[in-house]
């Protein structure tokens, strides 16, 4: 039983790392600032949640588990706020999101 829980925990951690790499590829490949912010912020919070869950499953209840939860709370609080602020700043300084197909930019794009 405990063995099975530990395996599920490690599966969560692997999933978190996979999500992290997927997010990094998204940040590298996506066409404009907003899609990149989207890729990074979703995968960051997702990876943090999955990884915390995985480590909690593997470690069980301990003082370290409480600290893990604090780390998770901090990431869940700060990462979306930072992404929001970044997107707001990018929009405020004149960057506009690419609408439509990015490979064929339309004429009315600023």
């Amino acid at each position: 039983m405990l063995e099975a829980i530990a395996w599920i925990g490690s599966a969560f951690i692997i999933a978190a790392v996979g999500l992290s790499i997927a997010g990094a590829v998204g940040v590298l490949r996506f066409p404009d600032v907003y899609t990149r912010i989207h890729a990074a912020s979703i995968t960051d919070t997702g990876a943090a949640s999955l990884m915390t869950l995985g480590m909690l499953l593997m470690a069980g209840l301990s003082p370290a588990a409480i600290k893990l939860c604090i780390v998770w709370l901090f990431i869940m609080l700060t990462s979306p706020a930072a992404a929001h602020a970044l997107a707001g700043a990018a929009f405020g300084s004149g960057h506009r999101p690419i609408l439509g197909d990015p490979r064929r930019p339309s004429e009315d794009e600023t």
Binding site: L77, P80, A81, H84, G88
Partner: peptide
């Protein structure tokens, strides 16, 4: 930005 304001207040 209310988001930043709330986040800062909490943090």
């Amino acid at each position: 930005s209310p988001v930043l304001s709330v986040a800062a207040r909490l943090l």
